[in-house]
Simulated scan of single mutants.
Amino acid sequence: MIKNILKTAFNNFQAFFVTWVIIIIVNQLFIFGACFAPYCVVAALPHTFVIAVLINYFLNDEESNEPQKLVKPESDNQLKFTQVENNIEENDFEETEIPFCPKCGSAMVLRTAKNGQYAGNKFWGCSKYPNCKGLLNI
């Protein structure tokens, strides 16, 4: 959850930064009694940062960040936007560590066997193939 919140702030950095500056100014005016001395501003940074991150996250929720596609209606000449259907589930991907080649130490690449008795099976192959033929079965 925290990872998603920070990711949203990073992806919308300009909006987040403007929000943070506005919150600091409002905070200094109303909470700290118009104190803009450096020690007052520094004291306000942590909690105003958290507030700005949360506001940015809830204003830019995931539904509004999905790509939209342009659809031209048949009846009139106005263009309308509709949401693109995203059939990818959150659990469709799993995090994997990329192993290193047992022969040369290079990073390995996930590959699928195309020929032979193992056709269709996945395996880790060396990224320096054909110079190195190291592989790991899954």
Rank of each mutant, 00 (worst) to 15 (best):
M1C: 04
M1L: 09
I2D: 08
N4P: 03
I5G: 02
F10E: 08
N11I: 05
N12E: 12
Q14D: 15
A15K: 11
F16P: 00
F17T: 04
T19F: 07
T19V: 04
T19M: 10
W20H: 11
I25P: 00
L29D: 00
I31C: 04
F32Q: 10
C35W: 01
V42M: 08
A44W: 06
P46M: 08
P46L: 13
V50E: 05
V50G: 09
A52E: 06
V53E: 01
I55T: 06
N56V: 01
Y57A: 02
E62G: 08
E63F: 10
Q68W: 11
K69F: 14
L70V: 14
L70P: 02
S75C: 07
D76H: 06
T82Y: 09
T82P: 00
E90I: 03
N91W: 08
N91Q: 12
E94T: 10
E95C: 01
E95F: 09
T96C: 10
T96Y: 11
I98Y: 02
I98W: 09
P99Y: 05
S106W: 00
R111H: 04
R111M: 09
A113N: 03
A113I: 01
K114C: 02
N115C: 03
G116E: 10
Q117C: 06
Q117V: 09
G120P: 11
N121W: 12
K122E: 08
K122A: 05
P130L: 05
N131F: 09
